[in-house]
Simulated scan of single mutants.
Amino acid sequence: MKNISILIADDEKEIADLIAIHLEKEGYDVIKVLDGQEAVHAIKTKQVDLAILDIMMPHMDGFEVTHHIREQSNIPIIFLSAKTSDFDKVKGLVIGADDYMTKPFTPIELVARVNAQLRRFTKLNQPKENTEDKTYLEYGGLVIIPDQRTVTLYGDHIELTPKEFDILHLLASHPKKVFSVENIFQQVWDEAYYGGANTVMVHIRTLRKKLREDEYKDNWIKTIWGVGYIFNG
């Protein structure tokens, strides 16, 4: 089994060193860089299984780094930043991050979140053994191919973040079943629900925009007020 390699991108060397110490104790290989350009170079040239990114870095910030990563990979991304506003948290999650922690932080919690993201990522990318299962979901003009993690709408490719895809796949796999916000968070983020309602709602909102519900008048994701969401396939 190959070693798991984690990228730490933070211009505060003391913080990067602290994180590295705790991750190495868990048996992970660590790559440390001090700015965004070095982070992008590491992603392109080295094996990286998970990235921990600061937002405010020289040369290229964490948001830009995330865009570069998502162009070529769906590895888990955790933001670790001093920026504590809800706007920054939501922006980070919407552009493709899987988790967001604020500084100051406890290394034990960060390691726990790293472990959770890697477990989830490994589970999602395991090959399917049951070849009799249908390999795609199709509802009208919407086609979801789980093995390729791709979505097309009336023949056009729809670019989704990993979390947006997971939410859509979860709902579309159980049409007409109502999922509460808490249930969606627990299944997609694979962790206990602690006030993640805003995170889920933001992802649902951006998902609806990408599915161009207003343009096509297709209400793929229906809100059941006071209860949750349902796939209207």
Rank of each mutant, 00 (worst) to 15 (best):
T223N: 12
I184F: 11
D54N: 12
R212I: 03
Q187M: 14
T135Q: 13
A16T: 11
H157T: 15
T135K: 14
G226Y: 09
K217M: 06
K209N: 08
I15D: 08
L80V: 15
G96Q: 05
E12D: 10
G92I: 08
N74E: 14
I75D: 04
I52Y: 04
D214L: 06
H41C: 03
F231E: 09
M60W: 02
H169N: 15
S180H: 04
D35L: 03
V181A: 06
D156P: 00
K25E: 13
G96T: 06
G96F: 05
Q148G: 01
K163M: 14
F165I: 08
Y193G: 04
P58H: 08
K176H: 12
K210S: 13
M201S: 13
P162A: 07
T84F: 07
V188F: 05
G196N: 10
A20D: 04
V33R: 00
V48Q: 08
L137D: 02
R70L: 02
I144H: 09
I204K: 07
E164V: 03
T152G: 03
V33E: 03
K163D: 12
I221L: 08
K46W: 00
I108M: 11
E24G: 05
K89S: 09
Y154T: 00
A97G: 15
I6G: 05
E182M: 08
Q148M: 13
L118N: 02
K134H: 05
D29F: 10
D88I: 03
P107F: 00
E38V: 01
Y194G: 02
D98P: 01
P175C: 06
D35S: 00
V143P: 02
E129M: 07
H59I: 02
E182R: 15
I52N: 03
E14A: 11
